[in-house]
Computed example of a mutant assay.
Amino acid sequence: MDIRAGSRESLRHHGDVEAGPGLLDFAVNVQGDGPPEWLRRRLADALGNLGTYPTVAADLAARTAVAERHGRTPDEVLLLAGGAEGFSLLPRLGVRKAALFHPSFTEPEWALREAGVPVTQVLLEDPYRLEDGAVPDSADLVVVGNPTNPTSVLHPVEDILRLRRPGRILVVDEAFADAVPGEVESLAGLSLPDVLVLRSLTKTWALAGLRCGYVLGPPGLLERLQVGRAHWPLGSLQVEAIAACSTADAVAAAQDNAALLGSWREDMIRRLRDIGVAVHQPASAPFLLLRLPDGELMRKHLRERGIAVRRCDTFPGLDGNSLRVAVRPPERTEVLIDAMKEIL
């Protein structure tokens, strides 16, 4: 199967394909081996409600929790079955031409192309700054990740807002924003008539199997996103999880985790550089972009040693010499470093 960057298959190649049973997982950006105990208990307590359909009241309660978390109103919140569902809804906005920055998460491009929306790839070169990319004036939809997957680049808010134009919708993918201390450079708290912000809860809270997220934006745009959407698009456990992860205690816990991730990331960068691996910096996300003389050989070598990392030649703008690794605790990082040293 052809999964080189630019092929249709490459747009749907994600880190979960690299991981597998028995492998030490540096390929998937989900943090931890499962949701924390308090969240497990809350979801377990909600199992008794599975005999009834998700209610309008529960949806409103979750949207209200999200709105309070970001200083918004409930009608500025649309719950999603994972942040990625938001990308599948974008064609319903009726846009004529989209522009997407790369290297970046490829699911938005796949969804738009599948719907027949013409897409322009705005390729950025190292150091991957937005100011270095030219967006066509004809693009009435622009998608940017912040922080960006897989480069770990955090774009300044002012650089993102400079992409706004009359008649254009700006979509900001903030799937990893809650892993940034203070959530700096986030647009989640800004109510703007032409900006949609997508959030995922699956990474920080290890809920990838439950699919939880939401989109923030003006009510008019959110209404357009829902045209033709299935009834009961989220199950009651998803709604419950979104509400739970939006409480003040959960937000505080996420920020504590972001600080811990930051210390792990700096330790990981130091260890990688000490053995001669080029790491893209500055890095702000729970993953790192690596550059090696022969990345494909390294990836295969690590897999033989029971370690999964993310290949990056499926991202437009990158090749087989780039790899992405998730930030992990020091004891797991030590295993990765020892295995890499064998071939370096």
Rank of each mutant, 00 (worst) to 15 (best):
L50A: 10
L50V: 11
G51V: 14
G51H: 13
G51E: 06
T52H: 13
T52V: 15
Y53I: 15
Y53V: 11
P54E: 02
P54I: 02
T55A: 12
T55I: 11
T55N: 12
V56M: 09
V56N: 12
V56A: 11
A58V: 02
A58Q: 10
A58Y: 06
A58M: 07
D59C: 13
D59S: 15
D59K: 05
D59M: 11
D59W: 08
L60Q: 07
L60S: 07
L60K: 00
A61L: 10
A61D: 09
A62V: 09
R63S: 03
T64Y: 07
T64C: 05
A65K: 06
A65F: 01
A65L: 09
A65V: 09
V66Y: 00
V66G: 04
V66W: 00
V66T: 08
V66I: 11
V66N: 03
A67Q: 07
E68Q: 14
E68M: 13
E68A: 14
E68D: 12
E68W: 12
E68S: 13
R69E: 13
R69N: 13
H70V: 07
H70G: 01
G71V: 11
G71M: 12
G71P: 04
G71K: 15
G71D: 15
R72T: 06
R72N: 08
R72D: 06
T73Q: 03
P74T: 06
P74W: 03
P74K: 00
D75L: 00
D75T: 00
D75R: 01
E76L: 04
E76P: 10
V77R: 01
V77F: 02
V77L: 07
L78T: 05
L78G: 04
L78A: 10
L78V: 09
L78I: 08
L78H: 05
L79W: 11
L79G: 01
L79A: 00
L80Q: 05
L80W: 05
L80R: 03
A81R: 09
A81Y: 00
A81S: 11
A81V: 09
